[in-house]
Design a protein around this nucleic acid. Structure first.
Length: 374
RNA sequence: CCCGGUGUAGCUCAAUUUGGUAGAGCGUUGGACUGUAGAUCCAAUGGUUGCUGGUUCAAAUCCGGUCGCCGGGACCA
């Protein structure tokens, strides 16, 4: 990897990670001002690692690291506990968290450069709770409910009251770790926006100990894309007022729907079968999950893609950029079935080291076992 | 703790009033059509009716008990 990136290169790298950036001008400024700004991502340990978490996120982390960004990863064990994951058993939640760390190691992330934070540490810190309350004091209950972005608005009232702590806590995380960049999924944008709004008050920023962080005491938001499920775009489910964002979130690949997800433990045959049955309209680049994986995963990881196909369909061909491939596909020169073959092969190439690690390594196998039976 | 509602196929629900061993849509699988998928058409797959005891020739249905979920209320010295 090259050692000296220009600020413009660094900007392009970070920009490439985000589907939405609030705001680009601030990101530019941040990268100018700080050689090693802090970005954070966090999530609740639960279930098995699928493509977005097990393969895509590691690729994004690598890009951030390459841009000189310091990456902090919050394993939201206490959030999972509040949410009653694993029957509220913190030990099992922690095991699930360790499993994910193991996934990223196997995916080739240099975990020495990534700071892993267990949220439970904050949970036990009175200073953290002070920040949670300061944030809660500075926005309305209505705003908190809006930030939750729970699908199916009609039964919002029957949700656990504990969920109301989420937004204030998640915001507090940002200030508590002094994150310059909120690098979470697009589905988390509302909470990040809330943090920006709260950060507009100077005295609050001071109380939260966030002075000098972000840009002018405000965090920059770099929301990464939600990879689509294998079955393609879904209708809007009410996650956001913006219909495009709503659809993007509604269409995301979900761990809880195994048939539309690829997991890092899937065999080459599984992957082939799943990709082959994926939604993939001919000549159409928009809302096409297979093309999305091609762009976001394959080209992000290797920079070229070889298509193998019978002579009668044009013979083998190697694309050296996504742009080139998309044009060919949109023009009808590249057939979906030929693309699928190549995509399945390349996804397996990325998944197989992880899959094998969890089969061969004793510690990893034990974690996998524990999460599977959890 | 009390009152009410509810529990039926993987999912959403019907059949309970007038007992006769369960249906639909969606999903899943296969086929047709496309050199992929989807859409469309055809076919198949689907359930110890929460659990338990009883009444009856016969119980998803009636009666008792029990468990889970949802809503409301009471208690708050």
């Amino acid at each position: 990897m090259r050692a000296n990136f220009s600020n413009m290169d660094r900007f392009e790298l970070v920009k490439g990670v985000g589907q939405e950036i609030i705001k680009e001008s601030e990101l530019k400024q941040l990268l100018r001002e700080k050689k090693h700004p802090v970005a954070y991502d966090g999530f609740e340990p639960s279930g098995l690692a699928h493509l977005p978490v097990g393969v895509y996120r590691p690729l994004l982390i690598k890009d951030l690291l390459a841009a000189g960004v310091k990456v902090k990863l919050i394993l939201a064990d206490s959030f999972a506990w509040i949410n009653n994951k694993f029957d509220g058993d913190l030990e099992r939640i922690r095991t699930a968290g360790e499993y994910f760390v193991e996934v990223w190691k196997a995916a080739g992330v240099d975990m020495k450069k990534v700071e892993v934070i267990w949220h439970k540490e904050f949970f036990d810190d009175p200073e953290y709770w002070k920040k949670v309350i300061i944030i809660a004091r500075n926005h309305s209950l209505k705003r908190t409910r809006r930030s939750l972005a729970i699908a199916g608005r009609s039964d919002d009232d029957s949700q656990s009251a504990a969920l109301n702590f989420y937004p204030s806590m998640q915001c507090a995380d940002i200030f508590h770790i002094g994150a310059d960049i909120c690098q979470l999924g697009l589905d988390q944008r509302k909470v990040n926006m809330l943090a920006r709004e709260i950060a507009e008050k100077r005295d609050i920023v001071k109380q939260l100990g966030y002075e000098g962080k972000g840009v002018n005491g405000k965090p920059v938001i770099v929301s990464h894309r939600m990879l689509m499920g294998l079955d393609g775009p879904a209708g809007a489910k009410g996650f956001d007022e913006d219909s495009a964002i709503d659809r993007a979130i509604s269409s995301k690949m979900s761990k809880s729907i195994p048939d539309t997800s690829i997991f890092v433990h899937d065999s080459a045959e599984d992957i082939k079968r799943k990709i082959n049955s994926a939604f993939c309209p001919m000549n159409t680049a928009k809302d096409n999950p297979v093309l999305e994986y091609t762009k976001e995963i394959i080209f992000r990881s290797s920079g070229e893609l070889e298509i193998k196909r019978p002579e009668k369909f044009g013979g083998d061909f190697t694309f050296s950029s996504y742009r080139e491939l998309e044009a060919s596909y949109a023009g009808g020169d590249l057939h979906p079935q030929d693309l699928k073959g190549a995509v399945a092969r390349e996804i397996d190439r990325l998944v197989s080291p992880i899959r094998v690690h969890f089969e061969k390594d004793n510690k990893a196998a034990r974690l996998y076992e524990a999460v599977t039976n959890g």
